[in-house]
Design a protein around this nucleic acid. Structure first.
Lengths: 128, 128
DNA sequence: CAAAAATATGAAAATATGTTCAGGTAAACG
DNA sequence: CGTTTACCTGAACATATTTTCATATTTTTG
């Protein structure tokens, strides 16, 4: 931590704010160059974080079969409607679900096919 | 909440622990029947939760180009090696990364192709 | 074999997340 | 038009997560 310089053995066209010990400067530079913009990491993290809860996954799986209203989902998950509503908000904010009003009832549905794919791949990974 | 019975209009072969208001008993029963075992929701949630952090996503993206050691990753993420090590443990526990020892250095790599697919689909979703 | 280097680990502190509780909207229906 | 029904929202509490700091472990090197 004593201001140790990096063991630079190649070109570093990016800014070299590397104030810690470095072994492979080339790969570090490459990884920095190939990195995504910060907003995309944030947006993807928000998406995955939203899917990182068993109850929200249950909601998504239930909606896979067709649209459902809030109290239906509460019944499926066996929890309060308020809890479901809070979770649906997160799912809405990450564009995983959308809703449609019919009279007093709001019907929720999956927003697109990405959800199916994500759950399918995750299941494959988990089951191996 | 006063012990209201469900508006049952179809067969409910499962146990009916539905003590809350229900509108569409058919869909509730269907969703319950089509549900996955609890462990699979838990495992998938653990997977997505692990991917639900910008820094861990940066690690995964960096490893996409090839294996890296801990201090390299710390340099890329511009954070402490201890923090990286803690995050790598989570990534190991969800089988997203694996490592290989060469002398003093541990080289980390992506464990399988699921990671690529998940990140690819998530990016698509986020960018639309 | 002792010292150095790379990484792992445990505990503590700061922050984030999920649920419940108690109201608050918006639409329908008498 | 007021009441009912379905849903939303904010605050508060409990729990989980992330980072830092100090220390342990593992492998090389002199």
């Amino acid at each position: 931590m004593g201001g140790n310089d990096i063991s630079n053995g190649s070109t570093m066209d990016d800014q070299d704010l590397c104030s810690v010990r470095c072994i492979h400067a080339d790969r570090i530079a490459a990884a920095r160059a190939g990195g995504l913009p910060a907003e995309e990491y944030e947006a993807m993290a928000a998406l995955f974080k939203t899917m990182g809860d068993p109850n929200r996954l249950r909601i998504l799986r239930a909606l896979h079969d067709g649209e459902m209203c809030v109290c239906d989902l509460a019944a499926v998950l066996e929890c309060s409607e308020s809890a479901v509503s809070h979770q649906l908000r997160q799912l809405r904010q990450t564009a995983l679900v959308a809703n449609r009003r019919q009279g007093q009832v709001l019907y929720y549905r999956l927003n697109d096919d990405h959800v199916h794919t994500l759950i399918h791949v995750a299941l494959e990974h988990v089951r191996e």
